[in-house]
């Protein structure tokens, strides 16, 4: 019975996931078609003006642009399922291939920032709760709100000015030194900019959650047991606030991705964000759709994972009942 219900649970979650992804692809496809601009110009550049009507029609035919929009979607979705997301109009290569060359940069940037924000946020939250109401807590809160209010591109520019231009400690832009290497060095400033502007948002939510938690009655029992404050927070509170914290982090992921794309632009860091902006500028539909799809899917999957982890972490979510042995 147990394995059966687990299988059912997995099937249910998978079904939800697939449905959401289909809706996402629909939105991505139709919104990008509605957007103004001429894809022919993107593909052929200035040559469009020299082409005859016959040539234009042929080109449309070849690119599949003269068909009914629903048919276009069906074709696109069908080939997308087989891993073919069309040809990038700018690069004249499969879009997936182009994305494949840069995605790891973004993954690294966003991943490192995400983990750092999670760990630092939690530590900061615990620190603040243990000193709640004292001066140090209040000072941290004020500083946190202030840094959170500075837009990340401004933060990034200031950092470039101080560390790259004035002090010359760290590289100004790009993901690697010329000829490769220096990945970490190039990562420090962008990550710092993202973390600095997003950290407090998470830390503050965690701090409030934790501060509510330490006022609950079972904490009193823990104190009566003779546990120290540190043990109570790490052993008992953490497990209880984890579901909430995981949800916070999952909801936070879109903010972080958006932030990372902006930072990529500022640092000319070759990643999905930069690619996305460029393809939007030049009406590179296929590329744009692929990037939107990747971003959207990662957010959806992150939320789904958060949900599953929640249900695993908090036993109250489980519906199954342990029965007594007769």
């Amino acid at each position: 019975m147990n394995t059966n219900s687990t299988a059912k649970y997995i099937l249910k979650k998978l079904g939800q996931l697939i449905l959401t992804l289909v809706v996402l692809s629909l939105i991505v496809f139709f919104v990008s078609r509605i957007a103004p601009g001429d894809p022919m110009r993107a593909y052929y550049g200035d040559r469009v003006e020299k082409m005859s009507v016959q040539q234009l029609d042929d080109a449309r035919e070849r690119l599949g642009l003269n068909e009914n929009i629903v048919t276009q979607y069906m074709k696109w979705a069908g080939s997308a399922l087989q891993g073919d997301f069309g040809i990038s109009y700018i690069y004249k290569r499969p879009a997936l291939q182009v994305v494949g060359e840069v995605y790891h940069n973004t993954l690294l940037l966003a991943g490192v920032s995400f983990i750092l924000i999670f760990i630092l946020g939690l530590l900061l939250a615990v620190f603040c709760v243990r000193h709640e109401g004292k001066t140090i807590d209040r000072v941290i809160c004020k500083i946190g709100v202030a840094t959170n209010s500075v837009p990340e591109f401004f933060m990034a520019l200031v950092m470039i000015l101080v560390f790259a231009v004035t002090l010359g400690l760290l590289p100004l832009s790009g993901a690697q030194d010329l000829g490769g290497g220096g990945t970490i060095k190039h990562l420090i400033l962008p990550v710092a900019a993202i973390v600095a502007s997003h950290l407090w948002y998470c830390a503050y939510l965690m701090r409030n959650k934790l501060s509510d938690e330490v006022r609950k009655e079972y904490i009193l029992l823990c104190r009566v047991k003779g546990l120290t404050e540190k043990q109570i927070i790490w052993k008992h509170c953490m497990r209880n606030i984890m579901p909430a914290v995981v949800s916070i982090m999952a909801i936070f992921l879109p903010h972080l991705l958006g932030g990372a794309y902006v930072i990529e632009m500022v640092f000319s860091y070759p990643g999905l964000g930069q690619l996305g902006v460029a393809s939007a500028q030049y009406h590179d539909y296929n590329m744009l759709m692929l990037i939107s799809l990747i971003t959207g899917a990662s957010v959806i999957i992150a939320n789904m994972i958060a949900q599953v982890i929640n249900e695993k972490l908090d036993p109250r979510f489980k519906t199954e009942e342990i029965r007594e042995v007769e």
Partner: peptide, 12 residues
Amino acid sequence: FQDPMTSLDPTM
């Protein structure tokens, strides 16, 4: 404590 519903850690 008085209220056994709230005085135990719910996730342990």
